[in-house]
Amino acid sequence: MSDSKAEASTVPSQKPVPKIKDISLMKAWKDSKAYREYTLFVQSLNRAVHGLKNSDTVPLSPTLDKLIILLNQLDSFIDQCPPKGRSRFGDAGYRDWHGKLEQESQQLLKDALPEQYHNYIEELNGYLCDSFGNSTRLDYGTGHELAFALFMLCLCKIEALTEQDSRAMVLKLFSRYIDLCRKLQRTYYLEPAGSKGQWCLDDYQFLPFLWGSSQLTDDGPIEPKQAIDERFYRDLSNDYLYLGAVKYINEVKTGPFFEHSSTLYDISNVAHWSKLNQGMVKMYHGEVLDKFPIAQHILFGNLISFDPVPKPTGEGLFKKPAPVANQ
């Protein structure tokens, strides 16, 4: 990443657009700079939160703090956009909320970011506005979650957030994002976008399970097989993304867990958290990044580039992930 900021600043900020128009472009996506950088980003954050609780005290930069405030403001819009009543999935009140998001987001980003980053706002705004669901289809899924993670990656690439923020990015910012998304899902009854239901992990999210399984360790408070048992996770769900996600599923779903969440039920049989975490990384590629129905909506611009990784060497494209304490 040493040169990425310079590279990015030489070209004007642009509104990011989808580029994976048909399935034949999936190979180009997997060979792209964006794919490589995003994969390294997810793994780097995965290592950063190893063994940590959401409530742990970690370095929190002023920018990250302001981004959390931005999410709080988006949350407050919900009260101004009440649900309108529905007959099936998706409450039309969500369109009001999303309209307000689009109307206010650029200004909110200006308020949150120091002026030197304001050149990038148009590009950042594309990812932010795509992070909370689709206002036409009234749905939300892992593709929107991916947009938020790309938003965080963009902030790192322009160095508005730095390596020092990596733990707080997951434990504080992403965790706040997930809370907001859950509130949106429940308030407006958003349809799970492209959901395989129990054949994937969850109707809406993936990353809380991925990063969340890194937070949990074999010498920690809970074993994988206890993670779906309310008696064990009840008091831990605020501190661990994985357990919070299981708790949320049990709040919104009824019927037997082994039916509505059969994959989570099956993998509770995995003996060690480290094994489970490795599986999550593989599954994230297999079920999210490498799936055309999701990839077709990914936005690309100057920061998240669809250009191929230069060959033969891929060195120096991305800042080497920081060595993490406790490893």
Binding site: D266, S268, Q278
Partner: peptide, 17 residues
């Protein structure tokens, strides 16, 4: 109701082998 459904045994998901 849940109690009228049979609980399947846990199987292994390929990603987690």
């Amino acid at each position: 109701p849940d109690n009228q459904r049979v609980i399947p045994s846990k199987t292994t998901t390929p990603y987690f082998l």
